[in-house]
Protein backbone atom coordinates (compact mmCIF):
# COMPACT_ATOMS: atom_id res chain seq x y z
CA UNK A 1 0.00 0.00 0.00
CA UNK A 2 2.71 2.46 1.10
CA UNK A 3 6.29 1.87 0.09
CA UNK A 4 9.38 3.93 0.83
CA UNK A 5 12.49 3.02 -1.11
CA UNK A 6 15.88 4.46 -0.14
CA UNK A 7 14.42 7.83 0.87
CA UNK A 8 16.88 10.63 1.58
CA UNK A 9 15.69 13.93 3.02
CA UNK A 10 16.63 16.75 5.35
CA UNK A 11 16.28 20.41 6.24
CA UNK A 12 18.52 22.80 4.32
CA UNK A 13 22.08 21.47 4.51
CA UNK A 14 21.32 19.05 7.34
CA UNK A 15 20.49 15.61 6.00
CA UNK A 16 18.28 13.58 8.33
CA UNK A 17 17.28 10.48 6.34
CA UNK A 18 20.03 8.43 4.70
CA UNK A 19 18.09 5.86 2.71
CA UNK A 20 14.97 4.71 4.54
CA UNK A 21 12.98 1.84 3.07
CA UNK A 22 9.76 0.53 4.59
CA UNK A 23 6.30 -0.71 3.60
CA UNK A 24 2.82 -0.68 5.07
CA UNK A 25 0.31 -3.25 3.82
CA UNK A 26 -3.49 -2.76 3.85
CA UNK A 27 -5.05 -3.32 7.24
CA UNK A 28 -1.69 -3.30 9.04
CA UNK A 29 -0.52 -1.42 12.08
CA UNK A 30 3.18 -0.66 11.61
CA UNK A 31 5.23 1.02 14.31
CA UNK A 32 8.30 3.16 13.70
CA UNK A 33 10.62 3.19 16.70
CA UNK A 34 13.70 5.23 17.33
CA UNK A 35 15.37 7.74 19.60
CA UNK A 36 14.89 11.49 19.28
CA UNK A 37 16.49 12.72 16.08
CA UNK A 38 16.45 9.30 14.43
CA UNK A 39 14.30 10.65 11.61
CA UNK A 40 10.83 9.34 12.53
CA UNK A 41 8.97 12.65 12.22
CA UNK A 42 10.94 13.55 9.10
CA UNK A 43 9.85 10.27 7.52
CA UNK A 44 6.19 11.14 8.16
CA UNK A 45 6.69 14.65 6.78
CA UNK A 46 8.16 13.22 3.59
CA UNK A 47 5.19 10.88 3.20
CA UNK A 48 2.70 13.76 3.69
CA UNK A 49 4.54 15.92 1.20
CA UNK A 50 5.44 18.65 3.74
CA UNK A 51 9.12 18.40 2.83
CA UNK A 52 10.78 17.23 -0.36
CA UNK A 53 12.91 14.08 -0.63
CA UNK A 54 14.97 11.91 -2.96
CA UNK A 55 14.26 8.26 -3.51
CA UNK A 56 10.91 6.54 -3.97
CA UNK A 57 7.68 7.05 -2.05
CA UNK A 58 4.59 5.39 -3.51
CA UNK A 59 1.08 5.04 -2.20
CA UNK A 60 -0.84 2.30 -4.00
CA UNK A 61 1.68 2.54 -6.79
CA UNK A 62 1.38 6.29 -7.17
CA UNK A 63 4.57 8.30 -6.62
CA UNK A 64 4.13 10.90 -3.85
CA UNK A 65 7.38 12.87 -4.06
CA UNK A 66 6.69 16.33 -5.45
CA UNK A 67 2.94 16.00 -4.93
CA UNK A 68 1.31 18.89 -2.99
CA UNK A 69 0.18 17.97 0.55
CA UNK A 70 -3.45 18.65 -0.26
CA UNK A 71 -3.36 16.18 -3.18
CA UNK A 72 -1.85 13.52 -0.92
CA UNK A 73 -4.70 14.05 1.51
CA UNK A 74 -7.11 13.52 -1.39
CA UNK A 75 -5.61 10.05 -1.85
CA UNK A 76 -6.70 9.13 1.67
CA UNK A 77 -3.33 9.42 3.35
CA UNK A 78 -3.67 11.42 6.57
CA UNK A 79 -1.33 12.42 9.33
CA UNK A 80 -1.93 13.23 12.97
CA UNK A 81 1.19 15.29 13.38
CA UNK A 82 3.56 15.75 16.24
CA UNK A 83 2.30 18.64 18.36
CA UNK A 84 -1.19 17.96 16.93
CA UNK A 85 -1.24 21.14 14.79
CA UNK A 86 -4.79 21.98 15.80
CA UNK A 87 -6.50 25.26 14.93
CA UNK A 88 -6.26 26.61 18.45
CA UNK A 89 -8.51 29.65 18.02
CA UNK A 90 -11.24 27.77 16.17
CA UNK A 91 -14.03 25.73 17.74
CA UNK A 92 -13.77 21.98 18.26
CA UNK A 93 -16.41 21.41 15.62
CA UNK A 94 -14.69 23.69 13.10
CA UNK A 95 -11.49 21.71 13.68
CA UNK A 96 -13.33 18.48 12.92
CA UNK A 97 -15.01 19.97 9.86
CA UNK A 98 -11.60 21.05 8.56
CA UNK A 99 -10.71 17.37 8.71
CA UNK A 100 -13.22 16.58 5.99
CA UNK A 101 -11.92 19.35 3.75
CA UNK A 102 -10.89 16.98 0.96
CA UNK A 103 -13.27 16.33 -1.91
CA UNK A 104 -13.40 12.61 -1.20
CA UNK A 105 -14.36 13.18 2.43
CA UNK A 106 -16.79 16.04 2.07
CA UNK A 107 -19.82 13.97 0.97
CA UNK A 108 -19.52 11.86 4.13
CA UNK A 109 -19.06 14.84 6.42
CA UNK A 110 -22.23 14.52 8.50
CA UNK A 111 -21.76 10.79 9.14
CA UNK A 112 -18.06 11.20 9.88
CA UNK A 113 -18.82 13.92 12.40
CA UNK A 114 -21.26 11.62 14.14
CA UNK A 115 -18.68 8.85 14.22
CA UNK A 116 -16.02 11.14 15.65
CA UNK A 117 -18.36 12.29 18.39
CA UNK A 118 -19.30 8.67 19.09
CA UNK A 119 -15.62 7.77 19.36
CA UNK A 120 -14.80 10.76 21.60
CA UNK A 121 -17.97 11.86 23.40
CA UNK A 122 -16.08 14.58 25.27
CA UNK A 123 -15.55 16.39 21.97
CA UNK A 124 -19.30 16.59 21.44
CA UNK A 125 -19.76 18.16 24.87
CA UNK A 126 -17.18 20.77 24.02
CA UNK A 127 -17.90 21.27 20.37
CA UNK A 128 -18.29 25.09 20.59
CA UNK A 129 -15.23 25.51 22.80
CA UNK A 130 -11.98 26.80 21.28
CA UNK A 131 -9.58 23.94 20.56
CA UNK A 132 -6.76 25.77 22.35
CA UNK A 133 -8.66 25.62 25.66
CA UNK A 134 -8.90 21.79 25.69
CA UNK A 135 -6.69 19.64 27.91
CA UNK A 136 -3.78 17.80 26.32
CA UNK A 137 -5.64 14.50 26.10
CA UNK A 138 -8.71 16.13 24.62
CA UNK A 139 -6.53 17.88 22.09
CA UNK A 140 -5.00 14.56 21.07
CA UNK A 141 -8.50 13.12 20.67
CA UNK A 142 -9.45 16.09 18.57
CA UNK A 143 -6.36 15.65 16.39
CA UNK A 144 -7.21 12.00 15.81
CA UNK A 145 -10.88 12.80 15.30
CA UNK A 146 -9.95 15.46 12.76
CA UNK A 147 -7.81 13.00 10.82
CA UNK A 148 -10.54 10.36 10.91
CA UNK A 149 -12.97 12.92 9.45
CA UNK A 150 -10.98 12.63 6.21
CA UNK A 151 -11.93 8.94 5.85
CA UNK A 152 -8.28 7.95 5.64
CA UNK A 153 -7.13 4.66 4.22
CA UNK A 154 -3.74 5.08 5.78
CA UNK A 155 -3.29 7.09 8.97
CA UNK A 156 0.11 8.36 10.06
CA UNK A 157 0.31 8.99 13.81
CA UNK A 158 3.21 10.91 15.30
CA UNK A 159 3.62 10.22 19.03
CA UNK A 160 -0.06 10.16 19.97
CA UNK A 161 0.77 9.31 23.60
CA UNK A 162 3.23 12.15 24.15
CA UNK A 163 2.50 14.02 27.35
CA UNK A 164 -0.69 12.10 28.16
CA UNK A 165 -1.70 10.52 31.46
CA UNK A 166 -1.57 6.68 31.35
CA UNK A 167 -5.36 6.15 31.30
CA UNK A 168 -5.66 8.61 28.41
CA UNK A 169 -2.91 6.78 26.53
CA UNK A 170 -4.97 3.62 26.81
CA UNK A 171 -8.07 5.43 25.51
CA UNK A 172 -6.17 6.85 22.57
CA UNK A 173 -4.68 3.50 21.61
CA UNK A 174 -8.11 1.93 21.96
CA UNK A 175 -9.48 4.45 19.47
CA UNK A 176 -6.65 3.67 17.08
CA UNK A 177 -7.29 -0.07 17.34
CA UNK A 178 -10.97 0.41 16.60
CA UNK A 179 -10.16 2.44 13.53
CA UNK A 180 -7.78 -0.27 12.38
CA UNK A 181 -10.41 -2.93 12.88
CA UNK A 182 -12.62 -1.10 10.41
CA UNK A 183 -9.90 -1.58 7.76
CA UNK A 184 -7.65 1.47 8.10
CA UNK A 185 -3.89 0.93 7.84
CA UNK A 186 -1.79 2.74 10.42
CA UNK A 187 1.81 3.87 10.54
CA UNK A 188 2.63 4.82 14.10
CA UNK A 189 5.64 6.72 15.38
CA UNK A 190 6.08 6.10 19.06
CA UNK A 191 8.66 6.39 21.80
CA UNK A 192 6.45 4.36 24.10
CA UNK A 193 7.80 1.19 22.49
CA UNK A 194 6.31 -1.23 25.06
CA UNK A 195 2.76 -0.22 24.39
CA UNK A 196 3.28 0.26 20.67
CA UNK A 197 4.75 -3.19 20.11
CA UNK A 198 1.93 -4.81 22.07
CA UNK A 199 -0.55 -3.40 19.64
CA UNK A 200 1.27 -3.25 16.26
CA UNK A 201 1.68 -6.02 13.71
CA UNK A 202 5.12 -5.07 12.47
CA UNK A 203 7.80 -2.57 13.26
CA UNK A 204 10.92 -0.78 12.11
CA UNK A 205 13.67 0.73 14.21
CA UNK A 206 15.35 3.89 12.91
CA UNK A 207 18.77 5.02 13.99
CA UNK A 208 20.61 7.98 12.50
CA UNK A 209 18.28 8.11 9.52
CA UNK A 210 18.61 4.43 8.63
CA UNK A 211 16.50 1.36 9.32
CA UNK A 212 18.56 -0.81 11.67
CA UNK A 213 15.99 -3.42 12.70
CA UNK A 214 12.80 -4.69 11.18
CA UNK A 215 10.41 -7.54 11.90
CA UNK A 216 7.09 -8.54 13.42
CA UNK A 217 6.11 -6.89 16.67
CA UNK A 218 6.93 -9.97 18.70
CA UNK A 219 10.34 -10.42 16.99
CA UNK A 220 11.26 -6.85 17.81
CA UNK A 221 10.01 -7.10 21.37
CA UNK A 222 12.20 -10.19 21.83
CA UNK A 223 15.28 -8.74 20.11
CA UNK A 224 17.86 -8.08 22.86
CA UNK A 225 19.28 -5.07 21.02
CA UNK A 226 15.86 -3.46 20.74
CA UNK A 227 15.07 -4.32 24.32
CA UNK A 228 18.27 -2.67 25.49
CA UNK A 229 17.99 0.40 23.38
CA UNK A 230 14.27 1.18 23.50
CA UNK A 231 12.30 -0.95 25.88
CA UNK A 232 14.93 -0.51 28.59
CA UNK A 233 15.32 3.15 27.89
CA UNK A 234 11.63 3.58 28.17
CA UNK A 235 11.53 1.67 31.45
CA UNK A 236 14.35 3.73 32.87
CA UNK A 237 12.72 7.05 32.14
CA UNK A 238 9.14 6.05 32.95
Amino acid sequence: MLALDSVEAGYGQAKVLHGVSLTVEPGEIVVLLGANGAGKTTTLRVISGIIGARGGVTFEGRPLIGMAPNRIVELGLLQVPEGRQLFADMSVEDNLLMGSHSARAKPHRARALEQSYALFPVLKERRTQKAGTLSGGQQQMLAIGRALMAQPRLLLLDEPSLGLAPQLVTAVFEAIRRSNESGMAILLVEQNANQALRFAHRGYVLEGGRVVHRGSASELADDPAVQRAYLGLRAATA
Partner: peptide, 9 residues
Protein backbone atom coordinates in the same frame (compact mmCIF):
# COMPACT_ATOMS: atom_id res chain seq x y z
CA UNK B 1 0.95 23.15 8.79
CA UNK B 2 -2.29 21.83 10.29
CA UNK B 3 -4.21 23.16 7.30
CA UNK B 4 -1.85 21.49 4.86
CA UNK B 5 -2.25 18.19 6.70
CA UNK B 6 -6.04 18.55 6.43
CA UNK B 7 -5.67 18.73 2.68
CA UNK B 8 -6.10 22.50 2.35
CA UNK B 9 -4.45 23.93 -0.77
Amino acid sequence: MGAMLCGVD
